[in-house]
């Protein structure tokens, strides 16, 4: 072949080392899945990571966006996890996103699920951000709750069994209902009666409906009475006023009654005026005197007109009257 042994050894060593290097490189690339993509680190804090390990997937809305790169126990009950997330998808993860640890299928490995936040205007996460976390109920907690539920269900079913036994034996109201044939007959009768009553009620309702349908809602007084609330109020007012007026009338009548009683019994001024005859004579003579006095005053006034002291004044009045008559 023409190849010396040392050449062969060199090539052999080269091939072996090359293969080892290739495997090592592939291993490291495989271990750090996101070696060739630009990544950012974000953090989340949990009280319990439920067996999460390094390299577990990080999912955002169900898509693998990164891996868990570090898990640190900061203090008791506080575990901080570092997640390496692809930069191109990190812009969709907002600052109000929530991280929770879940299981990938029933028996699968753990995953960190990042759930989108509700706020629309939250800013995207940047490297070093810590997002909120939400600790889901672990399988153990679920099982313990389920256990309690089962115990309760067992108690319930045993009680239910007792009740059903009693019913079968015909004890209690329900038992009577189920097993008593007379009661059944009575109930049937009741139902028949109820049916009749229902039919009667139905007929009555039909009649009422017919009556109602006959009412002319637009124009008739009944319609106004039935439907016009303004008129109803007015009518109410009218009745109130009427009541008040009747009370007043009652009062007035009472007063009048009292007056009449007083008059009848001869009390008061009016009664005196009406009953005393001398007073009437006096008034009559006074009236005659007043008449005579008025006549004499007229004569005096006529004499005064002709007096030289007052004549000028009366002439002036006459002239003025004549002037006004002419103007008209």
């Amino acid at each position: 072949m023409g190849k010396s042994t040392s050449q062969k050894i060199k090539v052999g060593v080269f091939v072996v080392i090359g293969t080892i290097l290739l495997v090592a490189t592939l291993y490291f690339i495989g271990n750090k899945q996101h070696l060739f993509t630009r990544n950012i680190e974000i953090y989340a804090t949990f009280a319990n990571v439920n067996g999460l390990t390094l390299g577990n997937n990080v999912r955002y809305s169900g898509i693998n966006v990164g891996t868990v790169s570090k898990i640190d126990m900061v203090d008791e009950g506080t575990i901080t996890i570092q997640m390496v997330v692809e930069e191109k998808t990190s812009r969709f993860i907002k600052k109000d996103a929530i991280a929770s640890i879940g299981s990938d299928g029933l028996v699968g490995s753990m995953v960190v699920n990042i759930i989108p936040g509700k706020s629309q205007d939250a800013k995207p996460v940047i490297a070093g951000d810590t997002i909120q976390s939400y600790s889901r109920i672990g399988a153990d907690d679920m099982l313990s709750t389920l256990n309690t539920t089962n115990e309760n269900a067992a108690l319930l079913t045993s009680d239910l069994l007792k009740i059903t036994n009693k019913i079968l034996e015909g004890k209690g109201t329900l038992g009577a209902l189920v097993s008593d044939t007379l009661l059944a007959k009575d109930i049937r009768q009741v139902v028949v009666e109820l049916k009749k009553t229902t039919l009667g009620t139905s007929a009555a309702i039909t009649n009422i409906n017919a009556i109602i349908s006959k009412i002319n809602y637009d124009e008739s007084a009944a319609a106004v009475l039935l439907s016009d609330t303004v008129s109803a109020n007015q009518i109410k007012n009218v009745f109130a006023n009427l009541e008040k007026s009747s009370k007043d009338i009652n009062e007035v009548t009472k007063n009048i009654d009292e007056y009449i009683q007083e008059i009848k019994s001869g009390k008061g001024t009016l009664n005196y005026v009406l009953q005393d005859k001398d007073l009437v004579k006096n008034i009559d003579s006074s009236m005659i005197n007043i008449k005579e006095a008025t006549q004499k005053l007229n004569e005096n006034m006529e004499a005064l007109k002709h007096n030289f002291l007052f004549r000028g004044y009366f002439n002036k009045l006459e002239r003025q009257e004549r002037k006004e008559a002419k103007e008209k």
């Binding site: 072949m1 042994t5 050449q7 062969k8 050894i9 090539v11 052999g12 091939v15």
Partner: peptide, 14 residues
């Protein structure tokens, strides 16, 4: 060891 590497080298030439 030498013969092992030599064989691998030889196989590579082959």
């Amino acid at each position: 060891t030498k013969s092992f590497f030599a064989e691998i080298g030889d196989m590579t030439f082959f």
